[in-house]
Design a binder for these strands. Sequence first.
DNA 1: AAGTGGTCTAGACCACCAA
DNA 2: TGGTGGTCTAGACCACTTG
Lengths: 254, 254
Amino acid sequence: MPDRFERIFAGENGLAAGSGPLYIRLRNRVERAISDGLLGDGDALPSERDIAELADVSRVTVRKAVQDLVRDGVLVQRHGSGTFVSKPVARVEQPLSRLTSFTEDMSRRGWNARSQWLQRGIFAPSPEEMVALGLAPGDEVVRIDRLRIADEMPLAIERASISTQMLPDPQKVDTSLYAALDVYGFRPVRALQRISATNLRAEDAGLLGLEAGDAGLRIERISYLESGRVVEFTRSLYRGDAYDFVAELTIGKN
Amino acid sequence: MPDRFERIFAGENGLAAGSGPLYIRLRNRVERAISDGLLGDGDALPSERDIAELADVSRVTVRKAVQDLVRDGVLVQRHGSGTFVSKPVARVEQPLSRLTSFTEDMSRRGWNARSQWLQRGIFAPSPEEMVALGLAPGDEVVRIDRLRIADEMPLAIERASISTQMLPDPQKVDTSLYAALDVYGFRPVRALQRISATNLRAEDAGLLGLEAGDAGLRIERISYLESGRVVEFTRSLYRGDAYDFVAELTIGKN
DNA sequence: AAGTGGTCTAGACCACCAA
DNA sequence: TGGTGGTCTAGACCACTTG
């Protein structure tokens, strides 16, 4: 039975046709098979060994092609199980104009949000923190690092730094950082965010349930009091495949 | 002369110490050497063959470790030249509250901005375009795809779709899409943007001078007229390593 | 227990770059 | 021209999942 996999991997004299590296030709064949509908969401591919035989290349070459597609989010591999076409992931949308906390935000959506502590304590500030928070030598910072989880899917890593002058005791923070700051009368009213994209490092990717090199949104936020004084400096990493920031723009005079 | 490379790659019984995959142990050694200052920005590493000999592993294993770090932006490789520690890239900042065009924006910064046409013409709309632009069957769209370049560095790929009812002739667009829309009285005043992160596909990465799998910012924008009617639907991909979006947030009642 | 992906090796040839 | 990274092979063993 000449099945679809033979057409995909062995069709037209194998990969002899065409030029360029074998793993790229192989990669293109798989992408074409998906866009042509020969392979659908969740479908299993043959094993790497079988693909190698069908396409008449080494398994190393098959792996190179497959890993590229895994890295691009086209395929997923499960150890001991097989290689499959990715299913799209449901995305969370986050409006970009209002200052909200993760907890508030997720519960408003009806998601079950929780956090996992990564670190919570008092430290000597890094140079980066000194600049961002405007600290003097000898000052100390509270660091609150959390893994944010919504409906059992890790969504983000959040690393917050606050001067001990604003938040003397990190143990006072249970679920909401802003609520704890409120207690001391230091709730921020304004913030500046910088958003960029980055390839996740192995450690961070692991926390988010992704692979090293997967795309993440990196967000740096500096929050201000009404008086203009800096309260909080937070660096976050969001899953690129599950998070959308939404912003409304208007045409400005300036 | 027992140089620093021996300490990095061959120190303490090679990689025999420790557990886990060899390429991860090797990767960690390089990362540690950089964070310890043993390797600085722009420094050259030994050749892959030399590292393999120093660490007593195969070259394939060295490549796996090095490629991981290249993918994370820690190292850069130049074919025929060598492997080097990355130098940080200058970043461009884009405010996220004002609706501006790329050309206007870059010239205000004193950058020399130009575009390269990727595609410009009239097409039958894709299902995605029909939904976004609110088209009826039989309607047509103008597609304007450009590679945005600032000071000879490719910064973004921009794919804009506009109903032919708003912009009958794509050839009317020379540098600024908004200027062309203005001529017909259809300049947008408001827009909604969705921002997320993605691993760039090989083709897009090539246009941006990056490697497949590198992180990019994906932005979808829908622009509206004063009347609320949709004008433009644009999907952009920005270099993750060279672009920052900046947003100001305020605490809201709602 | 059989099959899958994950890691690793030794060796080869090619394409590119710099001296 | 010699050294570099880029691609490719055939074969091996391990770790994990599933029937």
